[in-house]
Design a binder for these strands. Structure first.
Length: 275
DNA sequence: ATTGTGGCCTGCCCGC
DNA sequence: TGCGGGCAGGCCACAA
């Protein structure tokens, strides 16, 4: 996915439909609907509702509806939120240089997602604006009443106290802890490698081994990195990113980067600096 | 209970 | 040039 940074851009795009009434629901891809709700019943529930807020927690985007329901949108690795009509005007106004209706621009690993056959879910509104998810790999999903309590504090605003709690857990590798959405919500693979590289912390190190000073330092790097990469324009704009390939070298010290699998994800890190 | 694996899909890039 | 395998920003349901 889209990590927290991209989903935040989607959230801003979705603010364009706040106050609009849903007049069309295209949820024909039953596989994309999670939580046991079917296409027909979901359409019945949503039709006529007004979106009252667009919220985000981690990588989960939520549309609050005036009848009390919450519509949760997840994007997997290749999902994108697109908008058209009055909503798109607001998006292009708020994101300089962004293409109309496309808040993030070309997404890594998701080329070709403009293809209409990749549209997995769409909402139409009474003012003729629209919002839809394009997701070639179908890794995302739409859910009614997502369980927000299963997500930890948002990584963009996590406090040191919260992070200290999230890092409890003995031998669990630091990277696995940071990417566990129940502990901290929003950190994906690229962002995680960048944060640990900036913090000079090994991804393999047990999360529980961080002392108070290390937790504080990690918290500062974490929030600063999210802010920095948000400003640059995405999770893939980190300083480590160009070196995240076989044979890559540390941008700071030039040491050969290690490529390991940690927490089930490919991890690049500098064995000379990250301890 | 935790940890590992497969699955969902498409597209790109590499090596043969 | 063509083709096949590996790999990709996520996360869920299973099995062990």
């Amino acid at each position: 996915m889209p990590e927290l940074i991209e989903v935040e851009a989607y959230r801003r795009a979705a603010e364009g439909v706040v106050g609009r009434r849903i007049s069309r629901v295209d949820a024909t891809d039953a596989w994309y609907l999670k939580g046991g709700v079917g296409p027909g019943s979901l359409a019945d529930l949503l039709m006529g509702s007004v979106v009252t807020a667009a919220r985000r927690r981690g990588k989960l985007l939520m549309l609050d509806l005036d009848r009390g329901e919450v519509l949760g949108l997840r994007f997997g690795m290749t999902g994108r939120l697109l908008t058209a009509g009055p909503a798109a005007e607001q998006v292009s106004a708020s994101l300089a240089g962004g293409r109309r209706g496309d808040p993030v621009g070309r997404l890594l690993y998701s080329a070709g997602s403009d293809d209409p056959r990749f549209v997995r879910f769409a909402l139409g509104f009474s003012d003729a604006s629209a919002l839809w998810i394009s997701d070639p790999r179908r890794l995302g999903g739409v859910e009614l009443g997502p369980d927000e309590a299963r997500l930890g504090p948002d990584a963009a605003t996590v406090t040191v106290d919260e992070l200290r709690g999230a890092m409890e857990g003995g031998e669990l590798p630091l990277k696995a802890a940071l990417m566990d959405q129940r502990r901290v919500a929003g950190v994906g693979n690229l962002l995680c490698d960048e944060i640990l590289w900036r913090a000079r912390l090994s991804p393999l190190r047990p999360a529980g081994s961080l002392d108070e000073a290390a937790v504080e330092a990690l918290g500062e790097v974490l929030t600063a990195t999210v802010a920095d990469l948000s400003e640059r324009g995405g999770s893939h704009t980190g300083d480590l990113q160009p070196s995240r390939e076989r044979g890559g070298r540390c941008p700071r010290c030039g040491a050969a980067l290690r490529r390991d699998e940690v927490g089930g994800r490919t991890t690049y890190w500098c064995p000379a600096e990250q301890v």
